[in-house]
């Protein structure tokens, strides 16, 4: 094949100034290189979707709500009416007698735990370099998160002021 031989000759003689011919022209077009991110037959059908974008958005939306919920919580528990002095079983019983504060605390629990868990997931992904370490740290995180969210939810819903 003369085409191939011409190309090879041109390639091999690239250092020689006397043989300075163009490698490719209209009759000898350059080979097409596949775009690096093109979908091919080997690309998995199910891609990862836009999970990371959704968590990114969740961090911002939950963050705005948490600013109100958490700062309100701090104001009531640690600033107003004597600060931490007043806190005790009777104080908790008084607040959870109202569905409003039950819903407030429930929303705060779920949003703060999910917001914090996703934040820590990002931190683990950033700093745990070994695959195994990263995997098990995240498993530990997920188990602890599910346990804490369920425990807190159970406590809010089953609270009994007359436990004694």
């Amino acid at each position: 094949m003369s085409t191939t031989e011409t190309t090879e000759t041109a390639n091999g003689a690239a250092t020689e100034p006397t043989d300075d011919v163009a490698l490719f022209d209209v009759d000898h077009p350059a080979p097409v290189i596949e775009p690096p991110r093109k979908r091919t037959a080997k690309t998995p059908k199910a891609s990862r979707g836009n999970f990371e974008m959704q968590t990114w958005l969740f961090m911002r939306l939950s963050g705005i709500v948490l600013v109100v919920l958490v700062l309100g919580h701090l104001l009531i528990q640690l600033v107003l009416d004597g600060g931490v002095s007043k806190i005790g079983f009777a104080f908790v019983a008084g607040r959870w007698a109202s569905p409003f504060w039950q819903v407030w605390d429930l929303a705060m629990l779920w949003l703060a735990m999910l917001h914090g868990a996703n934040g820590l997931r990002t931190v683990i992904n950033d700093y745990a370099e070994r695959d195994n370490t990263r995997f098990w740290l995240k498993m530990l995180l997920y188990v602890a998160t599910v346990f804490t969210v369920l425990l807190g939810t159970l406590v809010i819903f089953t609270f009994d002021p007359n436990i004694r």
Partner: peptide, 16 residues
């Protein structure tokens, strides 16, 4: 802190 805080609050289900 949030982990610890949910755990200490859960003690309302144990006893006052």
């Amino acid at each position: 802190f949030l982990f610890v805080h949910v755990l200490d609050t859960a003690l309302v289900r144990v006893s006052p």
